[in-house]
Design a protein around this nucleic acid. Structure first.
Lengths: 301, 301
DNA sequence: GCACGGGTATAAGTATTCCTTTGGGGTCGG
DNA sequence: CCGACCCCAAAGGAATACTTATACCCGTGC
């Protein structure tokens, strides 16, 4: 049972004649006639009776017409649903982002996306970069916002594409009572901090800290470790150490008891958008990427 | 939105991979891959994400799959319904037949058809041949049982095909009190009846009566006219005239007060089945034709 | 009565679509 | 690292689809 022929048959029934169907289809009459013949052969029964002024459906033809109509309706519904997705009148993006982005640029981007495409639904899940990549690989997220510290090769996951969308500068964070707390925008010389106690972040942040200090000529005395930038700042405010934090984290939250200074030799981290290779063919994902990029562009540099 | 591609896509979704769909379809993998590519181009969005061990549907793919499933269901239903009609598990035949056939061979044929194909529904409508042809032409009947007297050209309706299926001999009907009432199977000589009063039937039957008598050398004195073979016999039984009736009418009903004799020179009428030209491509009609033919065959001659 | 205009079908030829073949890239598991 | 399996892209032959050309049938109107 050939579906195309069924739809041609539907036109015949609608027009009441083979020639009429040919006109509405923009074909010649024999083309439609052949379709009808093949369909009748497949069906094993006459579907129409040829009368002087056209054709008239047989019982089998009437039965077939009802099914053909139902199929045509479904086909239109499918096209409509797809159009809604393509034109971003609906759709869902499952987004994974690391905490400090989730608190700053991601909400801003979601808001922008919501203004541009009110029908698109975004579901955010907070995840550190490795977990975010795992979510993508497992098909549980469509798009991830990740970062990599300068000089660190980000793990390349097969099938995922990564695009850099901006840099997040890293700052020195000190207790307010620290001798270097004042000084404004003047870069601090890291070598003057060789004897400090340090607080490190996640594994890759800690590696970046070690590398930076080594290039400054010393090995830091790391006393504490935590992923959480609120915890980090609480420790620092109490004078339990000093640390490095990216600007996004400080934008999200800066504790009253700490001072933030730039320092020479601090390499920024790079922000990335990651998604499955063909996911940029998905309109909602593409729109989310655009919104994130547009939001992050001012943060660049 | 190409329906075939939609059904191929459905196989991809079912199999979970392009290669798997190709296996179930008996095609090569690139064939299926091209269908998918075209479908995605038409849709304007990715429908699947290519993963190491196959593909995974996107949101748009899931939406499309639901519609494709619905279409496939309808398609199977259409095939099933057609099969029921073709295999005569159901179907309707609208039959038109003239009165004496409707009382004799047609019920027998309907019974035979009902035994052969219990699912086929027959609707009988009694109609003299001209009306029966009009019903066929108007599409209100599928098959007609008609007759034509020997030597009469039946009206040829365009688009209808007529097949002779037997002959119905015509008999002389007399009052029981008539001098010729006795005599059994010995043919009566019509010329001995030139002085009788006659009762004629329908227009064409009357014409046949006139022709027969003329060939016998006289013009009949037609006193009464009626289509109805019961009325005809009532008149004859009362001695109001004599007449000719076909055997089918006498099979249906023979009045107690009449005698039936063969006569030399009485030409039989021919029974016909008439239907629209392609209606023999309709299984239920074909089955009804067979049943009628099988029932009429013994009546032949 | 016969040409005309509507409808139908069939036959043959050209186009197009479809599927296969071939070759190559990517990822997983031994 | 190789083999198995998945995917894609490009090119060619085969099948299908549509057109052209022709003929038939029926109702109508000159």
């Amino acid at each position: 049972m050939d579906v195309h022929r069924l739809l041609v048959f539907r036109e015949i029934a609608r027009a009441g004649s083979v020639a009429g169907a040919a006109r509405t289809l923009g074909w010649t009459q024999p083309a439609v006639s052949q379709h009808l013949r093949h369909l009748e052969r497949q069906a094993g029964t006459a579907l129409v009776l040829r009368r002087p002024r056209g054709v008239r459906l047989t019982e089998a033809g009437e039965v077939l017409l009802r099914h053909a109509d139902a199929i045509a309706v479904r086909l239109h519904a499918a096209a409509d649903d797809l159009a809604a997705l393509v034109q971003l009148r609906e759709g869902t993006v499952r987004l994974a982002a690391f905490p400090s982005a989730s608190a700053t640029v991601v909400p801003a981007a979601m808001s922008l996306l919501g203004r541009r495409h009110p029908g698109v639904d975004v579901r955010l899940r907070e995840a550190e970069p490795p977990e975010a990549l795992a979510l993508l690989a497992a098909g549980e997220a469509d798009l991830a916002v990740t970062f990599a510290h300068a000089g660190q090769e980000p793990d390349e996951q097969p099938g995922l594409v990564r695009t850099a969308v901006g840099e997040d500068p890293v700052r020195l964070v000190l207790p307010r009572s620290h001798p270097h707390a004042a000084g404004g925008d003047e870069p601090v010389d890291l070598r003057t901090l060789a004897a400090e106690k340090w607080i490190a972040g996640c594994a890759r942040c800690a590696a970046s800290l070690l590398r930076t200090c080594r290039e400054a000529g010393f090995t830091p005395d790391v006393r504490h470790g935590t992923d959480d930038y609120v915890v980090t700042q609480a420790l620092i405010a109490r004078g339990l150490g000093i640390g490095l934090l990216p600007r996004l984290a400080l934008d999200a939250f800066t504790a009253p008891g700490v001072a933030v200074r730039p320092a020479a030799g601090l390499l920024p981290r790079t922000l990335h958008l990651v998604h499955p290779r063909e996911a940029d063919q998905i309109p909602a994902v593409r729109a989310a990427v655009r919104a994130l990029r547009d939001t992050l562009a001012p943060a660049r540099g």
